[in-house]
Structures are given as C-alpha cells and as structure tokens.
C-alpha cells in the first residue's frame, strides 16, 4: 500500500500501481475454510462406522455410510423420513402462504394511498421488533384453548406473517411496478384484483422467489416454535427431531453415528436449494428486477 502517500495527488499522476489482491483473497479463503470446516467434517464423519468414528483420523473417510443410513432409516420405524417430510410441509407450505400474503400486502402498501396506510405499515413492520418468546408461549396457550396445539396448523399458521417479507415486497413493488402501467390498466377498465393478478404479479415474480427462499429457510431452521408447540414426534420437523435424537443419545456413543448421519442429511436439501437458486439470494430488492 505504498502508493497511498497523502498529498501525492494531482491530475497528471496515473492511478496507483495495481495491487495483486493477495491480502483480501487470503482473508476470504481463511473465512471459507472456517465455514466449510464443520460441514466437511460432518460429511466425512457420516461415512464412518461406529468403531472408525473414534479410532481413525478425522478426515479419513470410513466404510460405514450405508449401514449408518440404514440404521438411521430404521430408527423408530423410519421416523427420520417423517421428520424430513414434515419439515418440507412446514417450510414449503408456510413459505408459499407467507409469500402470497407478503406480496399482496407489500404491493397494496406501495401502490395505494388510503387512510391508515402509515399505521398499518408500522403495525405490520413493528413485528420485527417483537421477540419470538413473547409470541411462542402465548401462541401455544391459545392454540391449546382452541384444541389445536400439537397439530400441523399450530406450527404452520404462526409463521405465515413475516414483517421483513412484507417490507421487502413493498420495496420491490415500488421499484418493479410502474404506477403508469396500473393507471393505463385502470383507464382500460380493469378491476383492481385483475390489475394485481395480470399486471403486478408477473413483474413481482423474481422478488417473490427471493421472499419465498428467505421464508423457506427461516421456517426450515426454526426450532423454538415447533419445540414448544409439538409433543408427538410424528409431527416433528428435523430440527426438533435431531434435538431429541441428541438428548436421547448424548450419553451413548453408539448413537453418535445416527446423530451425525442425520445432521449430514438435514443439510443436503437446503444447501442444494441454496446453490441452485444463487441469483435469488439477495438482501436488497430496491434495484428492481433481479439480474441474472
């Protein structure tokens, strides 16, 4: 960084010698090694048999992957599969509903002016600041009163409203749906619902994919709510299932293989989604259409 002498300015001077970028690259590579380390460990460890897990060197692949998988799928009559399906149901169903509600709410808040708009926006967005604990326990009690605690609904319904998604949908609608297009539609006599459906929705689709992904991951990763709501392990999502597996198996090294293999398998769907949907993982939607 020797080129950075203060005072060495002047229009005649060409831009400083181009640095090689070794330091930033080095820092980023170290960061990547840190993040990939536990993931690669769990992948290797899941291939080891019970004996190999404690005896062979850490990153030497073992021979037990197939028997680990067989053991995991046999565990309590294949409850692991059920956890996986439940998680897909909660995350998939919840994210679809959440995206629908967030999109129409964000669109309405961005494209209409009406009395109470500011108040409604603040109420919906203020939810970001409400700690989940203030919600999860009374939600459980209220679901119990309605006789719905422990059902699929008790995990699905509370996760549909997502303040941050509404906020994203509003920003995205402002950027991606031109008001003139809506005006033109109105002049042609189109109803408001039809305008939303035919004009706005196609323009909003890329942003909706982003909202869907974030919400899918949030529900997939959620532990507190299903942990509080559910008692029957037939309805558990993976997070709660893996936790109970650990709580049952922490004292028995013979169950470690199951837990490690289960953890490894639980990573695959999300990482796959993550890698295939690269261009939709954006935290800022104000730029309008998603660039490919």
């Amino acid at each position: 960084m020797a080129a950075a002498l203060p005072g060495s300015r002047g229009p005649a001077r060409p831009s400083p010698r181009r640095p090689l970028g070794l330091a930033p690259t080095g820092v980023l590579v170290l960061g990547a090694i840190y993040t990939l380390f536990p993931v690669s460990w769990v992948v290797v460890a899941s291939t080891k048999s019970e004996g190999e897990l404690f005896s062979t060197s850490t990153f030497a692949p073992g021979t037990g992957l197939l028997s680990n998988l067989a053991d995991l799928f046999a565990y309590r009559d294949g409850v692991f599969w059920l956890w996986l399906l439940n998680t897909l149901l909660y995350a998939g169903g919840g994210a679809v509903l959440s995206t629908a509600v967030s999109t129409i709410s964000g669109y309405t808040l961005a494209k209409y002016s009406f009395p109470g708009r500011g108040l409604i926006f603040n109420l919906l967005i203020g939810g970001i600041l409400v700690p989940s604990v203030v919600l999860a326990i009374p939600q459980y009690l209220l679901f119990s009163k309605a006789g719905l605690a422990g059902t699929y609904w008790s995990v699905l319904l509370p996760q549909i409203l997502h303040p941050y998604s509404i906020y994203l949908a509003r920003i995205y609608s402002q950027a991606a749906v031109p008001g003139s297009l809506l005006e033109a539609g109105r002049l042609d006599g189109a109803g408001e619902w039809r305008l939303f459906q035919r004009v706005a929705l196609p323009l909003l689709t890329p942003g909706m994919v982003t909202i869907f992904l974030f919400q899918f991951v949030a529900i997939w990763n959620n532990f507190l709510l299903p942990f509080i709501m559910l008692g029957d392990d037939q309805r558990f999502p993976l997070t709660v299932g893996l936790y109970t597996l650990l709580a049952a198996g922490a004292g028995q090294p013979s169950l470690y293989n199951l837990i490690i293999t289960g953890t490894m398998l639980s990573l695959i769907p999300l990482i796959a989604l993550f890698l295939t949907m690269q261009r939709y993982w954006r935290t800022d939607l104000s730029g309008g259409a998603v660039k490919s």
Partner: peptide, 23 residues
Amino acid sequence: TRISIFLPYAVPGVAATLMWGFL
C-alpha cells in the same frame, strides 16, 4: 468464498450446534 461464507445461513441452528458440539 462468498458462497462458502454465506453457506452456514442454510444450516439450521440445531444442526450447526450439533456439528460444533461433536467437534
């Protein structure tokens, strides 16, 4: 490196704790 460092976002807190817990 950007994808690698963002990757843990796709790992549930329970799974992350389990992996590090064993480590």
